[in-house]
């Protein structure tokens, strides 16, 4: 009996600690603005593709310069410089609006939260995006920026920057780790 009470007590203490940690984290996160990836200094870009390769490697677990949330293109030859194809963090997001399954859903503060397992490869998100930020691989699997910021430190010329989104309140930088099963 004593043993049973002891185990029970221990269990309660454990639960309380978990609740406390959750509360603490929530307090910490509350009020931190949502951040989004921006590419404000592309005129500095040297076309190294380090950003795309980093996103593919770290977020999507791919070796690729396509299957990434940011892709670097030239606008008519190398002499005209580079442009980045990446998500503008629309709010509301047209790509999420057309998604028939909820694989793309609205992210607070702009952009989308991606749930790959819901995706039926219809390709509607890519069609809806005004800036061609969604890449479809040959099987129509979509790749888009989830605004995690991991590419930023790989840019040798500081072209990229995470900035506070105008509308967001809760830092989804943490939330996205849970929801974005980006494969």
């Amino acid at each position: 009996m004593t043993y049973y009470i002891l185990v029970h007590l221990l269990y309660l203490v454990q639960q309380a600690r978990v609740c406390y940690i959750i509360k603490l984290n929530y307090e910490l996160l509350k009020g931190i603005p949502v951040e989004i990836l921006t590419a404000p200094r592309m005129e500095r870009c040297i076309g190294c593709h380090s950003c795309s390769l980093a996103c593919a490697r770290l977020v999507h677990k791919r070796l690729s310069w396509d299957e990434a949330g940011i892709r670097i293109h030239t606008s008519g030859g190398l002499s005209t410089g580079f442009e980045a194809k990446t998500c503008l963090a629309c709010n509301p997001a047209p790509c999420a609006a057309v998604c028939p399954t909820g694989a793309f859903s609205q992210r607070k503060g702009g952009g989308v939260v991606v749930r790959k397992r819901l995706c039926i490869r219809c390709g509607e998100c890519a069609k809806a995006c005004p800036v061609d930020a969604v890449y479809l691989d040959p099987s129509q699997e979509p790749f888009v920026c989830i605004h995690c910021g991991r590419c930023v430190s790989f840019c040798p010329h500081d072209c990229l920057e995470m900035v506070a989104s105008p509308g967001g309140q809760v830092n989804e930088g943490v939330e996205k780790e849970v929801k974005n099963d980006t494969g």
Binding site: I46, W65, P156
Partner: peptide
């Protein structure tokens, strides 16, 4: 004018 890089190289040694 600027530097550019080979793909996969963050050094960007090409001087234009």
């Amino acid at each position: 004018l600027r530097n550019v890089a080979c793909s996969g190289c963050p050094v960007g040694c090409i001087h234009i």
